[in-house]
Design a protein around this nucleic acid. Sequence first.
DNA 1: AAATAAAAGGGGAAATATCCCCCTGCAAAA
DNA 2: TTTTGCAGGGGGATATTTCCCCTTTTATTT
Lengths: 214, 214
Amino acid sequence: MSKIDIIIVDDHLLFSQALNGLVSNFEEFNVIAVLGNGKELVNYFLEEKPKPQIVLMDIQMPIMNGIEATQWLKEHHPEIKVLALSMECEEETILKMLRGGAKGYLLKDIHPSILQHALKEVHSNGFYYTENVANTLLNSINKKENPNSIKLKERELEFLKLACTERTYREIADVMCLSPKTVENYREALFEKLEARTRIGLVLYAIKEKIVIL
Amino acid sequence: MSKIDIIIVDDHLLFSQALNGLVSNFEEFNVIAVLGNGKELVNYFLEEKPKPQIVLMDIQMPIMNGIEATQWLKEHHPEIKVLALSMECEEETILKMLRGGAKGYLLKDIHPSILQHALKEVHSNGFYYTENVANTLLNSINKKENPNSIKLKERELEFLKLACTERTYREIADVMCLSPKTVENYREALFEKLEARTRIGLVLYAIKEKIVIL
DNA sequence: AAATAAAAGGGGAAATATCCCCCTGCAAAA
DNA sequence: TTTTGCAGGGGGATATTTCCCCTTTTATTT
């Protein structure tokens, strides 16, 4: 029985090397490459090197992150399964990853044996979700019933980011190349959408939702 | 030559187990325990188990974090060296850790060989800093020379926190049991101190300085 | 005892922000 | 083909913020 080939993609060398040792010790699996970010993964495939059956993918990475890399894989090599490996249990991230085509999502604080099990499941059944992640998904479905996820239009986002500066609305209008009155409209629309009474409310929302980063 | 005993403390089982494999492969070192958080480390010592010479300590951990655990070690077993191992390169965290008694600070994205080298250095010389961390320390020293840390009075702080809500100044005055005109004075004083042009500036400052938490 | 800083209060004016109503195109969906 | 949604623009009124000028009282230093 030949081993299942795996590529590890993670920017933390210490982690990826250690993981390499760990996975290589699983008798069913064989690590054929350890890469540092999504871009390196894309390059790897462009160079026509041996394809893996599974990619163990970190999410937060420099240059090209795990979400982008997973989407690229789904488009170009849909037969290759992606198992996401992340620190964060945030709904949005999980959803993005799964929408991007990941077959499973593991948190980094699991026991190695679970990783082994997950790898086997992903290979044989095509997917693997931990209880934790499954619950998060359920929550997310519930939230969609009372749609809390506020969709902002591109222009509204632009405005929101500018509203989180010390600019007056007139100055924001200048930046956006709009009439102050149009900016007024964006402001009012966002007040309603985000349930804000004042501009401060917009700022607090934007920072909470990480639309602006401090 | 006997091996140097090490304890690994990290809440991410996958990481700590993998790290265990890695460090165990270094011929000079021997991992005698892998623990999941600071509390487990304290319990370990209270049970009079074999002492390590070095503790490889993660910082962000549940229940008892790496900073607290390092401080405890410094008090109770000052001869044991702590090597911090973290994702974050934030000045504050590094400082807290080093003040707490850590002998070195490594980022998790280093190469395994650097870890090995750092462990050897910490054991023989007593400390090890990467260039990265050293630079961060230098920056921090520079900041202390031109004291940027703005001192806010109690009442100003109260006002600042309230300014980070959707309250109008009149409403803030009510909360603070002051005349709106007095609140006005606090506003003006803070505008100057914090170099803000508008209330948004106050909010951004307060959030950056973690005076308000979102 | 005098100087200083903190806390509290104020007048008046101009600039902004907030609210509620309205309109035009234009493109995609029904 | 009508409807719907989005981007852009406006009038006019009111509330709030911002600015620059002030005073008094009460502690704390010096």
